[in-house]
């Protein structure tokens, strides 16, 4: 019932959601993840296969093919 937004009689009055410390920690974690994704993406783009397109090579591997790095 509680999950349906209904309040049972006699139940403690539901308090409205508010920003707390966890929200802040989560925001920090999200920022760190975003920074990590950017840095790993940039570096992965540097070591990805040269045959693939730009920014796509970051998520592709060389496999059994000989290593061919992009020029930049």
């Amino acid at each position: 019932m509680n999950q349906l937004g209904m309040q049972m009689p006699g139940a403690q009055r539901r308090r409205s959601a508010s920003l707390n410390i966890y929200t802040g920690l989560l925001a920090v974690a999200v920022l760190c993840l975003l920074a990590a994704v950017l840095m790993v993406g940039v570096q992965a783009n540097k070591v990805g296969p040269a045959d693939s397109g730009e920014y796509v090579r970051a998520i592709q591997t060389h496999g059994d093919n000989p290593v061919k790095l992009p020029s930049n």
């Binding site: 920003l19 993840l33 975003l34 992965a44 070591v47 990805g48 970051a58 591997t61």
Partner: peptide
């Protein structure tokens, strides 16, 4: 709601980071 949005964004970023890390590690 902000916390939820952040959770979703964090999850998405975690998945993306994991993929990038796998590819980067293999390369």
């Amino acid at each position: 709601a902000l916390t939820k949005v952040l959770v979703v964004i964090g999850a998405f970023l975690s998945v993306l980071l994991a993929g990038l890390s796998v590819a980067y590690t293999a390369n």
